[in-house]
Amino acid sequence: MTTALAAPAVRHTGARAALSDRLTMSARSLRLTSRDADTLVMSIVLPVLLMALFVYVFGGAISGRAEYVDYVVPGIVLLCAGYGAASTAMVVAADTTSGMVDRLRSLPVRSSAVLTGHVVASVARNALSTAVVVGAALLMGFRPDAGPLEWLATAGVLLLYVLALSWLAALLGVLASGVESASALSFLMLFLPYLSSAFVPPETLPTALRAVAEHQPITPVIETVRGLLTGTPIGSSGWLAVLWCGGILAVAVTAAGWAYRRRGRT
């Protein structure tokens, strides 16, 4: 027994240890997420249902169904990615209010490793649900004219968007007092795309809402994805999308790490 308890001579600092901690925590979060049936089912079923709703229920009323499918799919993809990433806030809040967080915080492990793990799992979960949504869209009549390069660029933009939102969600999850308050972000991410160019062109909105729709970060991301997939003009949306996402990402990563270290260390 004494041998099993002997303190091993290992270093807990340096880049190698930090990378190892990130990998360990990512493996943990991926495992937890793959076994969290509720979150997983919700992040796949909800997007597909929404897609069906817009295509079959609203699609018939708005102009031609086929054209509307091509218009609306990028918006749905974004809506789902946003919603999926936002659910990370609840995962992080649940983890941060559990006893596990005290154990992790009392280890010589860099705090950002824990959040990195959650974000990695979020990206993986969203990659899966986005693939399912795009697959469902194709079955429902979505006919993109994108070549391989455009698909790759689309994946890149979506990745950046999910990454930025996941870190933002991680930040809110750490700051939230509980899982319930952390779900506010999911609500916002379900709602915000309606005030963008996702479902209707902003020109059709009343002036005040139009101003919101044209200047919120989701619109340039949607316009970029729509342009890449269906060949509509992208214009300045590409740069705006990257700037918005990059900015949110930089701020959220910094703030989330800070908040995680601060919390509990009262």
Binding site: R28, R31, L32, S98, G99, M100
Partner: peptide, 14 residues
């Protein structure tokens, strides 16, 4: 040191 707190610090889904 190591800490075993009052709240369970085990991942249920592992």
């Amino acid at each position: 040191f190591s800490l075993t707190g009052q709240a369970s610090a085990v991942d249920d889904r592992q």
